[in-house]
Amino acid sequence: MSIPKKASFFAMLIMILLVAAACGNKADNNAKTNESVPTETTAGTDTDTAKTEDTENTESLEASSSESKVADNSKDVELGTTEQGSYNNDYFGVSLKFPEAWEFQDGDGMNELTSASSEAIAGDDETKKKQIELSQAKTLNLLMASQYPLDGGQVGPSAMAIAEKVSLLQGIRTGKDYLEATKKFMVDNQFPYEYKEFTTETIGGKEMDLMQITMDAGNGSTITQDYYSTIIEGYAFNFIFTYLDDKTKAEIDTIKKSVQFK
């Protein structure tokens, strides 16, 4: 495989790698939680209230009502608006700018890329296929902007935003939790990456956890990806920035400086 095609293919896999990674780890955490936590826990938290049948029924109804409200609120989630050179999302309260000459994809376009790369990632592994399908169902593809088309022969800097619905019961409480699940998936599947220590960075006024990975692209070239994650409205909200050298890093730094959280 030539270096340009290898790098371009790598860029196409960015999105599916992240969403599949956290899903697999969370599924394991969820299974352990179900084994160790009784189903009556929520209904029995108020120890000062008499354990009468009517009280339990009332609590059950209140829980159902609360779940319904969460479901109703989820309908208000939006993918945001992508225009030439800008992205804005009122639900997550975020906006950013990118070079007007860059290529960009809306949610539908990103979904197509996900479908195209999922087969390459999963192969004949049925368990991995199910993990990817489950994660896709909970994932919002928000933004993909890149200097070059992903299906072309060139690779350049890119910026991506995605969000995945998470739960405390799944063990995902912080952006770092989400990134650790991502790293575990990559390590378990022997992806040829090198990982730096997790850090935190403030972007647009919001503190986000950061995982940086690098990949040898051949001929002395290195691809670097910065994965940023934080929890917003019950979602793991993520930025993924890709660059190759000091020049392309400077372009990404300009995009990061344009990010604003409300």
Rank of each mutant, 00 (worst) to 15 (best):
K138C: 06
A11R: 10
T42F: 15
G175K: 07
A120T: 05
S167I: 05
L113S: 06
D90N: 15
S146G: 12
T230K: 08
I16V: 15
K130I: 14
F241N: 14
K176A: 12
M1G: 06
M110Y: 03
S167T: 13
K257F: 03
Y193C: 01
T42P: 01
E62M: 09
A161E: 04
A217Y: 01
F92M: 07
P38Q: 06
T55H: 05
T81S: 09
L210P: 06
A137H: 10
F191I: 02
A163Q: 05
E251K: 15
M15L: 12
T39N: 09
V70M: 00
I132A: 08
S60D: 08
K247L: 09
E112F: 06
A101V: 04
K128N: 10
R173T: 12
Q260P: 00
G123V: 14
G109L: 10
G123A: 13
T127H: 03
M160S: 06
A50I: 03
T58R: 10
I255F: 12
P192D: 05
C23S: 08
N29R: 13
I14A: 12
L134K: 12
L169Y: 05
F198T: 07
D106H: 04
V37Q: 05
T174Y: 07
L142H: 07
E201W: 08
I132G: 07
T248K: 04
E53G: 04
K138H: 11
T45P: 00
N30A: 12
L134P: 00
N73F: 12
D48F: 12
S117R: 08
G24V: 10
A11G: 13
K69N: 11
Q225E: 11
L17T: 05
F98K: 05
F237A: 09
S68N: 10
A120Y: 01
T254V: 09
T214N: 08
I3A: 06
V70F: 02
S158A: 15
Q212R: 15
A43C: 03
T214I: 04
M186A: 12
A31T: 11
I132F: 09
D245N: 15
P38V: 06
I16E: 01
K6M: 08
I232W: 00
I231P: 12
T139E: 07
T45Y: 02
E103S: 13
D90M: 11
N238F: 04
I255R: 08
T222N: 03
S86W: 05
E100Y: 02
V77E: 07
Y193G: 01
I14W: 01
M215A: 06
K75D: 12
V187Q: 02
D76V: 11
K5R: 10
K247S: 13
Y91C: 08
L13T: 10
T127P: 01
K129N: 04
M186R: 04
K6S: 06
I203C: 11
T199W: 02
A116C: 02
K129S: 13
G220A: 09
G109V: 12
I240E: 04
Y178T: 00
A116S: 04
T199G: 02
E59I: 02
E83Y: 01
A7C: 09
Y235N: 14
N219K: 06
E133F: 04
K257S: 14
V166I: 15
P99E: 10
I3R: 04
N34C: 01
G109H: 10
T52C: 04
